[in-house]
């Protein structure tokens, strides 16, 4: 990674510290910003954040590893989270899961080699009356059937080609 990208990230962290305050209470919002922008929270980012908030890097690691939506490793452009809790389970999440794996060619917990999709389980998404439910990044899909899985994945692919510049996987790694 280029030095300039490190500098950029440092500047951004400085800005976020201004916005959220440079104390421990700002940790989660700042991590969420980094996660949102870069798709993961790199080792470098964690150390910079720790420095800015005057805590220890391992404490940042402890927090990042605690929350399901924060990651230290690169995640796909689209993170697909399928609810596996009981209502969605009863509504047929297993078949949706299998179809997702088939469409993407990866199993749960993995990211496609092109870095576009990550497939994950989620605990209850609060859409239990309309299961099976899944989230693609922040967008909700309800009453998903194996048939619909293909549409969802295709829509993601289409939106990628519509929006040029490709998301930089290397950023902040």
């Amino acid at each position: 990674m280029l030095i300039t990208e490190h500098e950029l990230l440092k500047d951004e962290i400085r800005e976020w510290c201004v916005r959220y305050g440079a104390d421990r209470g700002a940790l989660l919002p700042i991590l969420q910003e980094v996660q949102h922008k870069y798709g993961h929270i790199s080792e470098f980012a964690m150390q910079q954040i720790a420095d800015a908030l005057e805590i220890h890097p391992v404490e940042v690691d402890g927090v990042v590893s605690f929350y399901q939506f924060l990651h230290t490793r690169t995640h796909g452009r689209f993170v697909i989270r399928l609810c596996r809790t009981v209502s969605c389970d009863m509504a047929g999440k297993d078949r949706v899961a299998r179809q997702l794996e088939n469409e993407l060619g990866i199993s749960f917990g993995a990211t496609t080699p092109d870095g576009r999709f990550t497939l994950e389980w989620a605990s209850c998404l609060g859409l239990c009356d309309q299961g099976p439910a899944l989230l693609v990044n922040e967008t909700v899909y309800r009453e998903v059937t194996p048939e619909k899985v293909h549409e969802i994945v295709s829509a993601c692919r289409r939106s990628l080609s519509a929006h040029a510049p490709e998301f930089s996987q290397e950023a902040a790694s």
Partner: peptide, 20 residues
């Protein structure tokens, strides 16, 4: 005040670890 060790992960994957 050295801060080398912390609990990471959660649930039954919780462990004591160093930074990464």
């Amino acid at each position: 005040e050295v801060g080398v060790l912390e609990a990471v992960g959660r649930g039954d994957r919780t462990r004591i670890a160093t930074f990464l």
